[in-house]
């Protein structure tokens, strides 16, 4: 049976899909982008521009779609969804990275004390009325006392005492307190970051340095009126006696700092050639071991073929 025809047909089909280029195309699936680093074929470019552009674009699209077809998929309502890996191309952001909100004073306290936040429900069950009522706001439960048809007054109470008014004043005071706290939190959050405060801290630091920068460390300097005494960082001393475990830990930490061979290799930034980067570049990110393996393999195959001859 002659199968050469079938084989030729299969080969033709295969050729229609496979792309043959001198330099492999770079695909960035995250951005659905393909870059063709091959130089432009000048003859074909001049002969028929549109046809040349279309054929190059077709090859690019073919490579990209072939790569897409090899991605993982996930079933979805509209058919299989091809999942994309994160992009490799670096594109600048439009806005800076979001900054986490600074914690409020209560949040700081709660974290220090290990208090878990428990969210209250917006509505509360009212036994008397037999219905759910809002905790606060329109016809809220916190205004119950203010609208009560009867209020208990103690026997020794002032003549002009008005329980309804008092309850309202209390509620308003609570609201005012909360607003004040909110403002303080906002002020605290913006304190460190404002340009003025940063400048102020810098000036204070410079001033403190200059004050102790004389031969007498500022001891015999002329003092200005109202000048405050310099307050530095108070030194803390370790206790003379401490557990053996602590001592062991600190000395081990010191020794590990002295050894630090991994850090040393990173520090030598003076060298002209960044060896690691160069190796990464030459081996196309595979590393030195892979490179040597490749080289030896090539050599091995060469010698073998030579031997056969």
């Amino acid at each position: 049976m002659d199968v050469s025809g079938i084989l030729a047909e299969q080969a033709q089909r295969h050729n229609a899909v496979v792309v043959d280029k001198d330099i492999a195309l770079e695909v960035d699936l995250g951005y659905l982008t393909v870059t063709d680093p091959n130089p432009v074929d000048e003859n074909e470019y001049k002969h028929d521009l549109e046809a040349y552009l279309q054929s190059t674009a077709r090859i690019g699209a073919q490579v990209l779609l072939s790569a897409l077809l090899q991605c993982q998929t996930r079933p979805s309502a509209d058919g299989p969804l091809t999942l994309l890996p994160p992009p490799t191309t670096l594109l600048p952001r439009a806005k800076p990275l979001p900054v986490p909100k600074p914690p409020t004073k209560w949040e700081q306290f709660a974290r220090a004390k290990g208090i878990q936040n428990r969210r209250k429900d917006l509505k509360e069950w009212d036994e008397e009325r037999g219905e759910w009522r809002a905790r606060w706001g329109h016809s809220g439960k916190n205004k119950e006392e203010e609208g009560a048809w009867l209020n208990e007054v103690k026997a020794n109470a002032d003549v002009e005492a008005d329980p309804e008014k008092e309850a309202r004043a209390e509620r308003k005071a609570r609201i005012a307190k909360n607003e004040r706290q909110q403002m303080q939190n906002a002020a605290r959050a913006s304190r460190g970051s404002s340009e003025r405060s940063v400048q102020k801290a810098e000036i204070e630091r410079t001033l403190a340095t200059t004050r102790v920068s004389t031969a007498s460390m500022g001891r015999f300097d002329f003092k200005l009126e109202g000048e405050k005494k310099l307050r530095g960082v108070k030194r803390k001393y370790d206790p003379t006696e401490r557990p053996v475990e602590d001592e062991k830990k600190s000395s081990l930490a010191l020794i590990s700092k002295l050894d630090g061979s991994t850090k040393k290799t990173r520090k030598d930034g003076d060298a002209v050639l960044n060896v690691r980067k160069a190796v990464r570049f030459v081996s196309k990110g595979k590393g030195g071991v892979a490179l040597t393996r490749e080289v030896t393999l090539k050599k091995g195959s060469k010698t073998k073929s030579e031997g056969k001859r």
């Binding site: 995250g30 951005y31 659905l32 982008t33 779609l65 897409l68 077809l69 998929t73 996930r74 979805s76 509209d78 058919g79 299989p80 969804l81 091809t82 999942l83 994309l84 994160p86 992009p87 191309t89 594109l91 600048p92």
Partner: peptide
């Protein structure tokens, strides 16, 4: 141009 036409980060695409 990449930023102009297709900089949106997509989790996945439908090939259709």
């Amino acid at each position: 141009l990449l930023d102009f036409f297709g900089s949106e980060r997509l989790e996945g695409v439908h090939l259709s």
